[in-house]
């Protein structure tokens, strides 16, 4: 029998115990200590001084790319270039996030989903010309200005050195573990802390004020499941009613079915169906296309 993703996830909400996300804990080293020093990685050396960006100064490093880091909870970033054999260049960025869940979330959006996993840090993914790695509250990105073998080997070596320098482990946020616990393996799993991240997995939510504490999304070939967590059941119920109302007021959207305060099926008239449900402190959203 085909799994009912909505029912399975709804059951998961009620049966799985909540676990708290790991906090930042004491950092073993400052961010400036994480970049490999000269001689630490064979054949690769830092170029000039590393730059550190605190808080809102992240815009100086990545301009409008800073928004989503701030939504997750950003502390500071380090930028350092490395030069290697035949003048190859690698750009290193280390992002120190507010806590390990924020690092998980940032990492979950930065990977492509089609890279090659590496056993580095808590997890790492090697892509065509870059690598992302997370460990503890840190997200590390190494980008080659070339994608040849020399550069990609350098990226992997530098990543290995940084992963060792961090010396603090992270964990998978509980809400992600809950959502991913259902049958089948989703193609991508994301951790959410706000509406900007959610808009990247469910674009039709742009402009909605969802007010969740945190959330998770799991994308499969035929659907996207989203779990939004609230401080308590009352707030979740209030927000659920507001979301159904918002959909109902949007041009093109219709409420096809509704069990007031419990669940609703919505349709945008163009083939997108959204099933919403509220249970305890959680709102569940299942998006499918036809």
């Amino acid at each position: 029998m085909k799994r009912d993703p909505f029912l399975a996830a709804a059951v998961a909400i009620g049966t799985l115990a909540l676990a708290t996300c790991g906090g930042p804990g004491p950092h073993e080293a400052t961010i400036a200590d994480l970049a490999p020093a000269a001689g630490e990685v064979e054949a690769w050396a830092p170029v000039a001084e590393a730059q550190v960006f605190e808080g809102d100064d992240l815009f100086e490093l990545i301009n409008g790319g800073a928004e989503i880091y701030h939504e997750f909870g950003f502390r500071r970033a380090l930028a350092q270039d490395f030069t290697g054999p035949e003048q190859r260049l690698i750009a290193l960025e280390v992002f120190e996030m507010k806590d390990t869940a924020a690092a998980y979330g940032t990492y979950s959006f930065k990977i492509s989903g089609s890279g090659r996993p590496l056993e580095l840090g808590d997890e790492a993914m090697l892509e065509d010309y870059y690598l992302n790695l997370r460990r503890g509250p840190y997200v590390v990105t190494l980008t080659g200005m070339n994608d040849d073998e020399i550069t990609m080997q350098g990226i992997t070596r530098i990543a290995g050195a940084i992963a060792e320098n961090i010396q603090i482990d992270g964990e998978v946020p509980a809400v992600v573990a809950e959502l991913a616990a259902g049958d089948g393996k989703p193609e991508r799993v994301y951790y959410l802390r706000g509406e900007l991240a959610l808009a990247n997995v469910a674009p039709f939510t742009v402009g909605m004020r969802l007010g969740m504490t945190e959330g998770a999304a799991a994308r499969s070939s035929d659907r996207t499941e989203v779990m939004l967590r609230y401080p308590d059941a009352h707030l979740a119920q209030q927000q659920y009613a507001a979301i159904v109302g918002e959909f109902g007021s949007r041009a093109g959207w219709t409420v096809v079915e509704e069990q007031e305060g419990v669940s609703a099926l919505l349709d945008d008239g163009k083939g997108t169906h959204v099933k919403l449900a509220c249970s305890d402190d959680t709102i569940l959203m299942v998006v499918s296309e036809s």
Partner: peptide
């Protein structure tokens, strides 16, 4: 410049709350 014009575009006029910025796409 980033401050004050672009930062207003990114985050509105509200100050960060508990060091968290709120991006607002619309």
């Amino acid at each position: 410049p980033h401050r004050p014009t672009n930062s207003f575009c990114h985050f509105g006029s509200a100050p960060p709350e508990n060091d968290k910025f709120y991006a607002n796409v619309d």
